[in-house]
């Protein structure tokens, strides 16, 4: 297989395991440079929507027919997390076709489902490779997989394993415990989503910079110096908004005294906005107030948007907060623009 014309072995495969039924690719369980590079690119949102591995059956170590089968998604970040957690183990990894989406989101969308897993079981001939009839599913896939449907569809029993792949070794040795069943939102987990929020927000950032550049031109005085000063003020206000809403907010989330994301973001925005008059003493208070209001509005919106990255806000709650916050944010953004332009005429 490794010398077939036109084929190339994936860099995460280090050999093939012969079984009576088929040759199964065996995956590496330590990251290579390519894996690390790919992780960085995905975390930066560069090819996050097309970061996949081929679905099917893989081997970790040298599993036999009795070895457990762990089911995962074909998003490569997920696939990597699972195989790197299983260094030194002998087991099977059945990768479902989730269209390159992580388990939880794929479950919600219906691409990680009993039908999809059963299809991979049939395609790979799993029932001829293992002697047992048991699949270990990630617990977070339970929003897409009805366990009894899986048994009906392919005869395999679904067992929900831990939430986090990192707990798999402990789970395989000692079984489940409460801590493995609960989601967490640690500082590290919150920090990991910051880059992608910033990169995916490039349209908003670019629009903000362009609009403020245009607003800087409105006014009776057309000296290059005056325009540059206004532009520097607007760009700083936008930068403060991004810092507060997309960096400080995720990091400080559990310490904030409010449950409202928009209010928490606005508060952090305000904490930075009060620095504006000190940094730009040459501007009138009207201009710095307008800029500060823009910082607060942007930080608030970005924080509200961060609900989508958390594992605890419900769609009902997010929608309720949005209905209240968005009209206020729209109003404060317009007011910020009016103040900013008014200052050009003073």
């Amino acid at each position: 297989m490794d010398d077939l014309a036109g084929y190339r072995i994936e860099p995460y495969v280090d050999g093939f395991l012969p079984t009576a039924h088929a040759r199964i690719p065996r995956v590496r369980t330590r990251p290579t440079r390519l894996d690390r590079l790919g992780t960085c690119r995905a975390r930066l949102g560069l090819d996050r929507n097309n970061y996949t591995v081929n679905p099917g059956l893989y081997a970790i170590g040298s599993p036999g027919p009795e070895a457990p089968v762990i089911v995962t998604a074909n998003y490569k970040l997920t696939f990597d997390t699972v195989r790197f957690a299983l260094t030194g183990r002998d087991l099977w990894l059945l990768v479902a076709d989730t269209r390159g989406i992580n388990i939880w989101c794929a479950g919600g969308k219906g691409t990680f489902s009993a039908g999809g897993i059963a299809e991979q079981v049939r395609k790979t001939g799993l029932e001829r490779i293992v002697s047992h009839r048991r699949l270990i599913l990630p617990q977070l896939g339970a929003n897409g997989v009805r366990a009894r449907d899986l048994r009906k569809a392919c005869g395999f029993e679904a067992v929900f394993g831990p939430v986090r792949a990192g707990d798999l070794p402990r789970y395989l040795d000692n079984g489940i415990d409460e801590a493995m069943r609960a989601v967490t939102f640690s500082l590290r987990e919150r920090a990991e989503v910051i880059p992608v929020e910033l990169v995916l927000g490039w349209k908003l950032i670019l629009t903000a910079i362009l609009v403020t550049a245009v607003l800087s031109l409105v006014g009776p005085e057309f000296s290059l110096n005056a325009i540059l000063q206004r532009w520097a003020l607007a760009a700083t206000a936008t930068g403060f908004g991004l810092t507060a809403g997309a960096i400080l907010f995720p990091l400080l989330l559990p310490a904030l005294r409010t449950r409202l994301f928009s209010l928490g973001g606005a508060g952090l925005g305000l904490a930075l906005a009060v620095l504006t008059p000190a940094i730009f003493p040459e501007h009138s208070w009207v201009a710095t107030t307008g800029a500060g209001l823009w910082t607060v509005s942007l930080a608030s919106w970005l924080a509200l948007n961060f609900t989508g990255s958390t594992p605890y806000t419900s769609p009902s709650g997010v929608e309720k907060e949005m209905r209240k916050a968005i009209p206020i944010l729209a109003g404060s953004t317009v007011l910020a623009a009016i103040l900013f332009v008014t200052a050009n005429f003073l």
Binding site: V145, A147, L304, S316
Partner: peptide, 17 residues
């Protein structure tokens, strides 16, 4: 989804703004 008798109901959804 996994409740065999629909004793539990919830409207699931995506919570992104």
């Amino acid at each position: 989804l996994n409740c065999p008798t629909s004793a539990i109901t919830v409207t699931p959804g995506v919570g992104c703004a």
